[in-house]
Design a protein around this nucleic acid. Structure first.
Lengths: 146, 146
DNA sequence: GGCATATAGTTAGTTAAACAACTATTCAAA
DNA sequence: TTTGAATAGTTGTTTAACTAACTATATGCC
């Protein structure tokens, strides 16, 4: 791939991901406005537990694209908020399985609604086929680098 | 715009921006491998000063999409590394203008080369027209939310 | 069984982001 | 001209990311 594909002035926004930062900020604002005491990072962990409860911390590392210390601390804080609970695995005592509490389960509907609203705000006026192509490009980038 | 445009399972990667995180991590690794003691965030400030030296901290906030305390601290750290220097404006004493040092100027060529390499890694196999469309979509997202 | 290695998770230290509260300077309007 | 609002920047606090070093458990090979 030729080096001259990018004008220098275009490098910045691709690397810094301004679009995804803007989406995350908007969602955080909606959480705050709704009186939810929850960070986007905490929400991203809950998101994967709503899909499948009882994931290990390592599973959550893979799912959220974070390293182990990050997940340790996110789970610490989610436990403090009483949204999840660590349970040591019976079969392999190295593993913590993370389970949602009732309060953790209760947040799903409201926060997913706010997340969908946020994406609808973000993608207003963008044709669906362009959205799909953009997602495919971003997936290729991820696959190329991971 | 209809709410059902997204399957729930697709929300996550759009919000978390895994692609741009992967790009930033790859670039950071290249910096480290080259023995450069520089974070991506610090580099992003230098990037805008290479385009136009002497920007104010507020200019850098706008350019880098960061808030004022973030820029204060990034400039603090860049000053410690002796890559930039704060100079109080003559005409408006509230304003700090930020100027590159010789060492700061010297980093441009090498780091921009590494940034281009990173983007070439990231976009390998993605046709240019798809890249352009993807960039346009991300710009729309940014414009919709900012 | 015992030892090396791999895996799961934690802790410590530095950098950065978001928010609120703050100081200092400028500007504009009464 | 003084007072009140706006602007530029700083500081304090909490949360999070990354790296490195660490503990504990499991696995596999002799």
């Amino acid at each position: 791939m030729p080096n001259n594909q990018f004008k220098k002035g275009e490098l910045y926004s691709f690397i810094t991901g301004k679009a995804s930062i803007a989406i995350a900020r908007r969602l955080q604002k909606k959480f705050n406005a709704a009186g939810l005491n929850l960070t986007i990072e905490q929400w991203s962990v809950l998101y994967h537990l709503w899909k499948e409860d009882g994931k290990s911390q390592q599973d959550l590392c893979n799912a959220t694209f974070r390293d182990k210390p990050s997940i340790t601390r996110l789970v610490d804080n989610l436990e403090k908020l009483q949204l999840v609970k660590r349970v040591a695995s019976e079969s392999d005592r190295r593993i913590n399985k993370i389970f949602l509490t009732k309060q953790g389960l209760k947040l799903q509907e409201q926060t997913m609604q706010l997340a969908e609203e946020t994406l609808n705000d973000a993608l207003e006026g963008v044709p669906p086929d362009q959205i799909n192509l953009c997602k495919a490009v971003l997936q290729s980038v991820y696959d190329n680098l991971k």
